[in-house]
Nucleic acid binder design. Structure first.
Lengths: 297, 297
DNA sequence: ATATTTATCTGACTAAAGTCAGAGAATGAT
DNA sequence: ATCATTCTCTGACTTTAGTCAGATAAATAT
């Protein structure tokens, strides 16, 4: 008997093979335009707006020597020019010449042709079916590539996430939100061994955060749970919560509490679903109107 | 305003990018095991059962000289051995040594790991959603890669398709089917400028056929419409029918007729959907019990 | 029996992709 | 002011991938 998990894995592998073949093959060679693939790729990434060479190197994952040579080749063909960046003369900035822009448009058109060639043979119904399945796959692959990791709460990324969180509260709450009026909690509170600050990232971009601090012996408090608008519905909140609880157990916190506001409907639902039960107010913060607690284990 | 078609194309391109990144990257390098990618691919394709070198070359699409060198390299590493095939000493047969089998298992395991790493971060509901979308995409990409082309009706592939068709009739009809009792129609009838024989192929494999012959001045007759079991529901019958009608117009046939049997339910539905209307019997063939006609244009 | 075709192999290439060790200029840290 | 770091560039490589023109042996066609 083939187990459920085995069949699932087989399905994923089959998908990988089919799609890699159908897309990879067409893409790679078809888009080449006689030019080495590496050059085309670089040209395409430089794009209409240009790009810092440093950034380009990271995106394509190339050795700096190799990158330099690629750019030299494109330059010699009159497709791009490189200039120093205003702020930092070490960093070079690559941008398309008019000739390069033409070439770029051609690559772009071919990309469209590839897409069209996939859709063309299908009738309306199947086409829509394919498109909706593609949208779903994209979204779910995005979800599956989200990584959650602890980071210092005072790191620039963490600060950025917090700002997003505060902006959200400010938009949702009647009368806005001002962190100065709320219970203070600084980076120190969200640092092991008493707390932690988690950041969820999708392909490098931060898309969510969540924090844990101590609220007395054996008690943890969850704060700052935020998921970017663009990444809602991917189960990131759930995963953050699970990881926060795990961290709490690691710190010996057997009880977790948190507060929230009724305008944060998704958060309320998440907590209830995960076995948090409502308790009387345990603080007199001006913003929360619901208080929850859960005993772990 | 962005047109509907443009948005669709954008969706396909976005999908291609996402999938190529998430799967392509992991697959290619992660599965490499320090070995050149070409060698790994060959090793994997040789697989547990071994394979004829000829077949392997076709599958990987490699030059025979290059293929030979790849095999020599794998042989030198003690991963495979090659022997002559019993029937034909020109053809070499490549198979894994025990060491090669171990290596193969490792690649296989890594493939599983890649699949698992995609599924693992998702909860049950999203996992199922992803898997079903993958199955759908696979199927629809298969449909979109089906090519229809005219071929001589006496080619081996055409003969093979016809045999499949007759086998199907034989299985479906009460009392079976014997082409000798039916109206004769030979390769000559299905040849331009009076007829044509179309074959639908998916990645090289024939998955359907359909034929057109003349049935008098300005009248065409469609025969031998068959779609492989494994390729039903992909719209191939519809596409064959459309291309046959187009061919008929090209031959100046303004009226098309055809006969069928009630046991071929899909065919009947297809004809009705495409505007064929039932007419009195126009032949006394023993097998058909429904006769259709359509005026083109 | 001879010619042709098929499958593989070898040698001699080329192009593309990528690595590594510095060098040099600009910037940031102390 | 000095030192370390960052970013790019150059030269000198290697590896991978692939092509092309025969050579060879076995099988097939005439």
């Amino acid at each position: 008997m083939i187990s459920r998990a085995t069949a699932d894995i087989e399905q994923v592998r089959r998908f990988n093979r089919t799609v890699a073949r159908r897309i990879g093959v067409i893409n790679d060679r078809f888009l080449g335009r006689g030019r080495p693939f590496g050059e085309s790729r670089a040209l395409f990434e430089i794009g209409t707006d240009g790009i810092e060479v440093r950034e380009l190197r990271i995106r394509l994952g190339l050795d700096s020597g190799y990158m330099s040579r690629l750019l030299r080749a494109l330059e010699k063909d009159g497709l791009i020019k490189t200039t120093a960046t205003p702020g930092d003369a070490r960093v070079r900035y690559a941008s398309l010449t008019p000739k390069g822009q033409k070439e770029w448009n051609e690559i772009d058109r071919r990309s469209d042709d590839v897409a069209t060639s996939i859709l063309a043979p299908l009738d309306e119904r199947r086409r829509e079916d394919l498109l909706s399945a593609m949208a779903r796959i994209e979204r779910l692959l995005r979800a599956s590539s989200v990584m959650i990791a602890a980071e210092p709460a005072d790191s620039p990324t963490a600060q950025w996430c917090l700002q997003q969180y505060f902006d959200l509260l400010n938009a949702r709450f009647d009368g806005g939100y001002n962190p100065a009026n709320a219970q203070p909690a600084d980076a120190h509170d969200f640092t092991p061994p008493k707390g932690v600050f988690l950041i969820a990232r999708a392909t490098g971009e931060p898309v969510g955060c969540g924090a844990l601090k101590s609220a007395g012996p054996g008690i943890g408090e969850i704060k700052r749970v935020w998921v970017a608008e663009s990444a809602r519905g991917l189960g990131i909140g759930q995963r953050l919560l699970e990881e926060l609880e795990e961290a709490a157990l690691g710190f010996g916190q057997k009880c977790i509490r948190l507060d929230t506001n009724r305008s944060l409907t998704e958060a309320g639902a998440l907590y209830r679903k995960n076995g948090y039960r409502e308790v009387p107010a345990f603080n007199d913060d001006p913003y929360p109107d619901h208080w929850f607690e859960k005993v772990l284990g």
